[in-house]
Design a protein around this nucleic acid. Sequence first.
RNA 1: CGGAGUGUAGCGCAGCCUGGUAGCGCACCACACUGGGGGUGUGGUGGUCGUCGGUUCAAAUCCGGCCACUCCGACCA
Length: 577
Amino acid sequence: MRTSKYLIATSKETPADAVVISHQLMLKAGMIRKLASGLYNWLPTGLRVLQKVSRIVKEEMDNSGALEVSMPVVQPAELWEESGRWDVMGDELQRFKDRHDRDFCLGPTHEEVITDIVRNEINSYKQLPMNIYQIQTKFRDERRPRFGVMRSREFIMKDSYSFHLNQDSLDQTYQLMYDTYSNIFSRFGFSFRAVEADSGNIGGNKSHEFHVLADSGEDEIVFSDQSDYAANLEMASAQAPLAERPPSSAELALIPTPDSRSIDDVCNFLGVKQSSTVKTLVVLSDDDEDDEQTLIALVLRGDHQLNEIKAAKVAGVSSPLTFATEEQIRATINCDPGSIGPVKAPVKVIVDRDAAILADFVCGANQDGHHYSGANWERDARIESVEDLRNVEEGDASPDGNGTLSIKRGVEVGHIFQLGNKYSAAMNATVLDENGKSAIMEMGCYGIGVSRIVAAAIEQCHDEKGIIWPDNIAPFHVVIIPLNAHKSEEVTAVSESLYAQLQAIGLDVLLDDRDKKTSPGVKFADMELIGIPHRLVVSDRGLENGQIEYKKRGMPDTQDVAVSDIVAFLKKTVLID
RNA sequence: CGGAGUGUAGCGCAGCCUGGUAGCGCACCACACUGGGGGUGUGGUGGUCGUCGGUUCAAAUCCGGCCACUCCGACCA
């Protein structure tokens, strides 16, 4: 490609509404343009990268034995009603009617459609297992699109769905996909982690997320420094406390604590550490027979944070977790939410493991403006049950007993689930087994955010000048920059010759043949911003010595290579795979 | 969905408070110079000031409705 025939579309200014680096650089480098909130046009440079990412994902999926199909973006409501998700899904599901007033939606995912295909096409256990994938545009009407293509409403996803006669077969394919995903993200050169994850609303049991480590990531992931334990913060547990609860030594004392409603306030007022206090959060129970929902108190150590996912899984607690309103608290406990505590509380008290081993602690007294000091479990406060309710913290012991936990931010680029028979049962997707009996298929599903990978790669690979692409997803492998071509026939001739020769050995080459009004500085800056990994500068100065200047993007030094060697040099330097 | 904010040229912004000729930088076009790091000069192109309505002799500016977009939070298959 010649820049004179191409759309460079770079800009010096950083657009005001881009906050993360990948979004800024994608706009500045002319890869994308916003069309509306969460909707982006992909310009030529961006599309080249996107297609290379897709190609690698496709190659590895094909290698794994998965079969590629293409399913429509638009899906009929009937299938979603059959699976039960038409009514369950929130407004992320973009619903609309066609001219005949029939209900449709834009596909945010394709479990229903694939299950429909498979129940029609697959009849025998002999055809299983089968893993089917597509690389397709998805639409989710996100409440708050942000970070450019990292969280857009329309995006490209590789989604695959596997079908099995039994759990063993599902386990095997799940592991195969785990390994395939690891291969894919390794090919992009990512620093990534696979972590145990909550399977969320999609249903099912076993689930792993693949995260690219990046400070701008929206998720917090937890891993041990000495073992392979890794989990999403939502799922992560610390090792249960090993210490026994010390014996009580203090008397329960009621203390006026005017205007002290938060843990911070109380600790400042009383001069105690947060870890010697407990905080009490009141949530709704899950008995919904009548309007009079009972309340449940969740008690954590003052310095710990509630994990809402874990709390919602505790027996008796509403799911999704719903906090009691101030009125409900007032009606049942008769105090404001800043003064609640487990002592003589008129509700069930569920206690976090770390809060349960405290003795002589400070807590709310269930009277406005009062706290207790010297409170002790059993003696002063009844425990309904002890659970793991809190977020892990940096430095907690790993649950497998090996090492301590670190927390880093990550961008979720892949997610694999074991769905079980949630969709196959609802939609009656069965095969005949070897005994001739009808069997509901087990399912797995596996997603990769293809467009998100482009952003994640930039998050990991950039410097103050711009993007630094790995060779295998760079929009171009090599850029040739002729200097003073308008004055030097030799520079022009050598540049053209190189351009042809490098293309002939299979490289994607960009020849910066913009006219003399485009100064060398502009060309260098543009190509560094765009992130082309290999740069050749052809100049009279170099040609006098029979040399071309080579520079690798991101490396400080240039090197001179003989004109006669340059093609062979690049052939072995550029990593095309 | 709650809170906050912004809409003026392709991009970044000023002008609004105190109503009266719509401006600056970048980009773009022409010419000349320059020619290994976003160069210089001269001259240009480009805007229904988000939109609808109100006040006024007069509205980018004051008032109101609507729309769009952004940020923080909640949510996220």
